[in-house]
C-alpha cells in the first residue's frame, strides 16, 4: 500500500492507504483522529469537513492520495494551544450551537472557512453557506446565532 505524508494540524504525519481510501477514512482509521465524522455515503451531510491547503473540503470526497503533501486542518487542531476554545468554538457553546455533537466538527470547520472568506456574513449568507452541512438536532438556530456572535455581530434571537 502506498504511504502518504501530510501536515495535519501543523504536525507531519505519514499513513499507509489503499488507492481507494478517502481522506476521511485515512484520518479516522489510519491516524486515529476520530474527531472528523462520517454521516453519509453521498457527500451530503458535511460532518467530515476539514481544511485542505486552507480550503474547506468534505474529506469523504477526496482520496487520501490526493492529500499527499497537503496541509490539513481538522477539528482536533482548532482550540488554542492551552486547550481553551477558540472564538468560534466558544460561540457555539455560548449559543447552544450543538446538541449531539456529531455534525459539530464539520460545522465548525465550515463556519471557520466562511468567516475567513467573509468576516461579517449576514444571517442569510450564513444559512446559504451551510447548505452542505446537515444538523438534525438544533434547527440551525444556535449555529446561526453562534456564527453571528463569533463574527462580532448581534444574534438574531438571543437564547432564552
Amino acid at each position: 500500500m502506498p504511504t502518504i505524508t501530510m501536515n495535519v494540524n501543523g504536525a507531519p504525519v505519514s499513513v499507509e492507504v489503499e488507492n481507494r481510501t478517502v481522506l476521511s477514512s485515512a484520518l479516522r482509521e489510519g491516524l486515529g483522529m476520530t474527531g472528523t465524522h462520517i454521516g453519509c455515503d453521498t457527500s451530503q451531510c458535511g460532518a467530515c469537513v476539514v481544511h485542505v491547503n486552507g480550503k474547506a473540503v468534505k474529506s469523504c470526497t477526496i482520496f487520501a492520495l490526493e492529500a499527499d503533501g497537503a496541509d490539513v486542518e481538522t477539528i482536533e487542531g482548532q482550540a488554542h494551544a492551552d486547550g481553551s476554545l477558540n472564538v468560534l468554538q466558544q460561540a457555539f457553546q455560548d449559543h447552544h450551537g450543538l446538541q449531539c455533537g456529531f455534525c459539530t466538527p464539520g460545522m465548525i470547520m465550515s463556519a471557520a472557512a466562511l468567516l475567513k472568506e467573509n468576516p461579517k456574513p449576514t444571517e442569510a449568507e450564513i444559512r446559504d453557506y451551510l447548505e452542505g452541512n446537515i444538523c438534525r438536532c438544533t434547527g440551525y438556530q444556535g449555529i446561526v446565532d453562534a456564527i453571528m456572535a463569533a463574527s462580532g455581530q448581534s444574534t438574531a434571537i438571543a437564547a432564552e
Binding site: 476520530t34 474527531g35 482536533e76 482548532q78 468554538q89 457555539f92 457553546q93 450543538l98 455533537g101 456529531f102
Partner: peptide, 23 residues
C-alpha cells in the same frame, strides 16, 4: 439557570467518543 453545556467542550474539540470511534 441557563448553564452552558459542559459536554460541549469535548464535542467542540473533536474529543467526543462515539461508537464508531472505538476500535
Amino acid at each position: 439557570h441557563a448553564t452552558k453545556r459542559r459536554e460541549d467542550v469535548r464535542f467542540l474539540t473533536g474529543r467526543g467518543k462515539y461508537t464508531d470511534d472505538y476500535t
